[in-house]
């Protein structure tokens, strides 16, 4: 876990500017503090009983207007040149589509591979296209000194960087996005290029096999697809599969359980069957399980019919009552 060292080329530039500006600030603060303390001691009324009125000094006023203007223009220039580069993506950058949702991230590589942790080859520029499926999030990797808000409805919203050290880094959501904002964390694995290619091809082959099996009309393994979707679509950031309640009810033993739900303010008992689960995904606010906040985002338009089927099969598999 490395959050401190700047581990990207942009990051090293940011640090250089930061320490330059911070040094200027420290010198200014030291001077100001020194003069306050020095004057307070030297011109204490006991030592200096007769004050001298000095109403002002035009030269001094000019100097301490012009010099700070030059200093801040210099700092502005430093910041601007570093910032401008963030808009100029190298042509050979690898593109990854990032989707943010309450409260998880997913990363889609070329070829359709979708992951919940970001894996990158070291030394290669990468361009991340950012989209949000609900509210504003912010993509932040402190170690790389990169951040960009992920705004729903905003197109062509991207950031790019070049990681330059192998390692595992933290990725945070930096824009407050509701209940589990501080859990919207994942990992960035920066790997040697060969290792990265091997990893990606392995994943793609597996996906192809699944697709081929499905086309050939073999028995589709809905349960394992459902399990994969539950991670990719972020279900697991609120629903556990081990029986412990998180933000939403656990999926373990949920299927065919009798739950007290709140419908339009009134409590009633209902059976958690396939129909109820489907409705909970598409209209989560309609029947909310008692004791949980009504905050699940609707999956209407997010999940396809096949994906809903697969998830229901997966949830079924977590219950002893399978009928």
């Amino acid at each position: 876990m490395i959050t401190q060292a700047a581990s990207s080329i942009t990051g090293k530039e940011v640090d250089a500017v930061f320490f330059t500006v911070a040094a200027i600030c420290v010198v200014m603060l030291a001077l100001i503090s020194f003069f306050i303390v020095y004057f307070v001691i030297k011109y204490n009324s006991k030592r200096h009983p007769t004050p001298v009125d000095i109403p002002g000094n035009k030269t001094l006023e000019t100097v301490w207007t012009v010099v700070p203007v030059l200093i801040v223009l210099f700092i502005f220039y430093l910041g601007w040149t570093g910032f401008e580069k963030r808009f100029e993506v190298p042509e050979d950058a690898m593109t990854i589509n990032v989707t943010a949702r309450q409260w998880s991230w997913s990363f889609e590589y070329e070829g359709g591979l979708t992951e919940t942790e970001l894996r990158l080859p070291v030394g290669k520029p990468v361009k991340l296209e950012l989209t949000s499926s609900d509210v504003i999030h912010s993509f932040y990797i402190p170690a790389f000194r990169v951040k960009k808000d992920v705004v729903p409805g905003l197109t062509d919203n991207f950031l790019w960087f070049t990681p330059d050290a192998v390692g595992v880094y933290d990725l945070f959501c930096a824009e407050y996005c509701g209940l589990s904002h501080s859990s919207m964390i994942t990992k960035v694995h920066v790997m040697e290029e060969a290792e990265f290619i091997g990893w990606k091809e392995g994943k793609l082959r597996k996906a192809e096999k699944e697709a081929a099996a499905s086309l050939a009309g073999d028995v589709v393994d809905h349960v394992s697809i459902g399990r994969r979707l539950s991670v990719e679509k972020g279900c697991v950031s609120c629903h556990t599969v081990d029986g412990s309640p998180l933000i939403g009810p656990t999926w373990k033993g949920l299927y065919l359980k009798k739950e007290t739900v709140i419908t339009g303010g009134a409590e009633r008992l209902t059976l958690v069957d396939a129909e109820y689960i489907r409705k909970s995904m598409l209209e989560p606010g309609a029947d909310v399980v008692k004791g949980f906040p009504p905050i699940m985002p609707s999956q209407e338009g997010v999940l396809t019919e096949d994906e809903i089927e697969a998830l229901i099969e997966y949830i079924k598999s977590l219950s002893d009552n399978k009928r």
Binding site: V14, V17, F18, V21, G79, W80, S138, V146, K147, K148
Partner: peptide
């Protein structure tokens, strides 16, 4: 505030 006004540095420090 000067540090935060510095564009490239603000990208890192914003919302921290």
């Amino acid at each position: 505030g000067l540090i935060l006004g510095t564009l490239s540095v603000d990208v890192h420090l914003h919302d921290t």
